[in-house]
Write a protein that binds this DNA or RNA. Structure first.
Lengths: 120, 120
DNA sequence: GCCAGCTACCTTGTGTCACACGGTATGCAC
DNA sequence: GTGCATACCGTGTGACACAAGGTAGCTGGC
């Protein structure tokens, strides 16, 4: 049995993956928006192919709403010549500030986990 | 001592931190147990001081139960000369296997997030 | 005209989980 | 015996990813 999926699966591992992604996905979206604005469907296309993320529309859109309510992103509607109007998302100044803090925290956390059982 | 995390707080950030920790905490426990067995209270003392983790008893004990039910850790009771009996937790073979898979996945995820908005 | 198919957005229901708070019990110092 | 540290565990709350489904605009074939 050499079924070579990227990662083997089990009950516990599947749930763990979901939990791990929870925080990372928000960070990925903010980082992606930090380079330039995007519209929702564009984000889905890009991030659904990122290894390990596995983003879907049902995850992204509620998340973007939360980010907007929290004041981290702002939106802008633009007519498209080929399809429905697109809603572009971009970072607010507070969004950029928060992103910096998140990056710092994650770095600390990574350093902590690395020194626990890995190679001190 | 009262080591307070050196990170500013906000509504969104606080929730995000909780989400990020969710997956990492399980990994930290498994990694810690990979070096040698520990009892619960010992784990709380050690991991509650790890920067960024902020582990408490209410988080740890249900988590250890879940790990035991999932077959990743096993327990052993031992009388203590100074206090109540201690329940020692150690990794099962399946626990070690799962830990390896988790490490591999997290490495992939870290590489993905690093290439998103960091340094293209 | 009309319908199939892509683009683009969003909602609802289900299940998982950290954390705060509280509870129980043992041993030791005074 | 009363306080304090040790050591274990459970419940309630709220947050959230994900699957599945829904709405609507535009284009091309006929």
């Amino acid at each position: 049995m050499h079924g070579r999926a990227p990662f083997p699966v089990s009950d516990f591992f599947d749930n763990w993956v979901i939990q791990v992604r929870k925080g990372v996905i928000e960070l990925c979206i903010l980082r992606t928006l930090a380079t330039r604005e995007r519209y929702g469907y564009e984000l889905v296309k890009e991030l659904s192919e990122a290894p390990g993320l596995g983003l879907t529309e049902g995850t992204l859109y509620p998340l973007l709403s939360r980010l907007r309510v929290s004041g981290l992103v702002q939106t802008r509607l633009e007519e498209s010549s080929a399809g429905p109007a697109r809603k572009y998302y971009s970072l607010t100044p507070e969004g950029r500030r928060t992103l910096k803090t998140m990056n710092a925290f994650l770095e600390t956390l990574n350093r902590t986990t690395a020194t626990l059982g890995g190679t001190p």
